[in-house]
């Protein structure tokens, strides 16, 4: 079952939402989140947010809210490079 998560990502033809993936694999979303968390701990998947500010720029304030879309960006889960190869 765990490997199905990796396979689904390897064979997907575009971005997939977490809900769609849970329907595709026939598991509850909560279970899928746990499985993804396991692979993240194992270093096979990585999570990341849409924005990555953290650097002082002309338009940004000291807090993340100052970065437009930083707060509204979705969380992404990707295969790590070695997994894709």
């Amino acid at each position: 079952m765990l490997h199905q998560v990796l396979q689904a990502l390897e064979t997907a033809s575009g971005p997939v939402s977490l809900d769609d993936l849970s329907r595709q694999l026939g598991v509850d979303r909560g279970v899928l989140e746990d499985m993804i968390a396991f692979w993240v701990r194992k270093g096979r998947l990585q999570t990341g947010a849409g924005g990555a500010c953290g650097k002082g720029c002309g338009s940004c304030g000291p807090r993340a809210e100052a970065c437009v879309f930083k707060a509204g960006g979705p969380q992404t889960i990707t295969l790590v490079e070695r997994e894709r190869r």
């Binding site: 650097k55 002309g58 338009s59 970065c67 437009v68 879309f69 930083k70 992404t76």
Partner: peptide, 12 residues
């Protein structure tokens, strides 16, 4: 994702 952030500011 970075391109959407670019609507706000190119630096972040």
């Amino acid at each position: 994702l970075p391109m959407v952030v670019g609507f706000g500011c190119s630096v972040p």
